[in-house]
């Protein structure tokens, strides 16, 4: 098992509810990947940019996705696929 840094913008399906953000799916390599479970979330700050990070479990692996609250971009940060 090894984690690979990706850093690619991805299209993401998300529900904003009860003050929380819940990712349902994202598209990567022309494939729609359904999220099974969001396992953890944390914040970072780069300059004035606040970035929310999510670790998620989906079919076939573990992913880290970030959401930039300044430019509203979703980025697939890391992937670990068996």
């Amino acid at each position: 098992m090894s984690v690979t840094n990706i850093g690619e913008k991805v299209k993401t399906g998300v529900i904003f509810t009860k003050g929380g953000i819940f990712i349902k799916w994202f598209e990567w390599k022309e494939k729609k990947i359904e999220i099974k479970k969001m396992t953890h979330r944390w914040w970072t700050q780069e300059g004035q940019n606040k970035i929310l990070h999510f670790s998620v479990i989906a079919d076939g692996g573990y992913y880290e996705i970030s959401y930039n609250l300044t430019n509203f971009e979703w980025v697939l940060e890391k992937v670990e696929v068996d």
Partner: peptide
Amino acid sequence: SVEQLCNPC
């Protein structure tokens, strides 16, 4: 533990 929490595998 935080890493195990993020990645249950």
